[in-house]
């Protein structure tokens, strides 16, 4: 695409004058977004420096909220859970999605059916996914019954009510939904790889793994960046599925930053403190947002 600074003459004619109505076309959506997104975001930064219960005026307290946060064990637990979540959720869905994309890449009989089945969960809301899995996890549910059937009664437990397993139980449900999505991304990535390279490597005697590792994988770099950024942004946003399955419990064992923020803000009305948590989430997400935007810019230019 031609650069904006030195457009060819014909384009300049079309682009130069901006009629008033076109400014309106831009301004109306931009104002809606400023009012609903940017202005609130800026406000959160301000609120994070205050103490406020929603009534009266917010009291400025400087950085107290942040100091308290790092002394707050529940917050630190939630932060650590978020790390586990990002690694587990990201790692498992990328591994699963990539493996399935490679397996289902070449057209052959049945591939369409398999693909549809695997990305179907993606259309359900996270809350629905949560309930689907709550049913499986409950004490006399499928999971315990299956474990019992193969003689593993000792492993049976109340998956969502046990602080040792709650987070992972929710994570599995979230991965189940995400794998199809990652698979779709990788399928697109694989489609844009050059099949002749793969064939050439096969002729030269490279095995399936070698061809994947040294021929296909390097060509997926662009998709990897996107998948990586998206997965981390998604894991920092994760709220619905935890809210639907455990609400962060038992004893905050499945608490994530987002659920803790929501509780502080909307249950306890500690609006300043909750805003401080939101700011932490934002700061953590920022680098990945930038990664994504850089990638988007590249595509704009391409």
């Amino acid at each position: 695409m031609t650069s904006v600074t030195a457009p060819p003459r014909r384009r300049r004619a079309g682009l130069r004058a901006v009629p008033k109505v076109v400014w309106l076309f831009l301004l109306i959506p931009a104002l809606v977004e400023v009012g609903m997104v940017f202005w609130p975001a800026v406000n959160s930064f301000y609120l994070s420096l205050t103490e406020w219960n929603g009534l009266g005026a917010a009291q400025p307290v400087g950085l107290d909220n942040f100091k308290n946060l790092f002394a707050d064990e529940i917050f630190r637990g939630a932060l650590w859970n978020n790390v586990i979540w990002a690694v587990g959720f990201g790692g498992l869905s990328v591994l699963g999605g990539l493996a399935l994309a490679v397996a289902l890449n070449r057209p052959r009989r049945g591939v369409g059916l398999y693909r549809s089945a695997i990305y179907l969960p993606m259309v359900f809301s996270l809350a629905v996914t949560g309930l689907f899995w709550r049913v499986q996890y409950q004490p006399d549910g499928t999971i315990n019954t299956l474990l019992g059937a193969i003689g593993l009664e000792s492993v049976e437990r109340q998956w969502l009510a046990d602080p040792d397993t709650a987070l992972y139980a929710v994570l599995i449900a979230a991965v189940w939904r995400q794998v199809g999505y990652v698979m779709v991304l990788y399928l697109a990535g694989l489609k844009s790889t050059d099949p002749t390279l793969d064939d050439a490597a096969a002729v030269d005697g490279a095995g399936a793994w070698q061809r994947f590792r040294f021929v296909t994988w390097p060509q997926l770099r662009g998709v990897n960046t996107v998948v990586f950024a998206v997965t981390v942004i998604d894991s920092l946003r994760t709220f619905d599925i935890v809210w639907a399955m455990t609400q962060g419990g038992p004893y905050h064992s499945s608490e994530l930053l987002s659920t803790y923020m929501f509780q502080q803000g909307f249950t306890f009305l500690n609006l300043g403190y909750a805003s401080a948590i939101a700011v932490v989430i934002f700061v953590l997400a920022l680098i990945f947002i930038i990664t994504y935007l850089v990638r988007a810019t590249k595509e704009e230019i391409a």
Binding site: M36, A41, L236, F262
Partner: peptide, 11 residues
């Protein structure tokens, strides 16, 4: 791309 959490209370 902003995390919705940063918008909830002000919104």
């Amino acid at each position: 791309l902003l995390p919705p959490q940063i918008l909830l209370i002000p919104v």
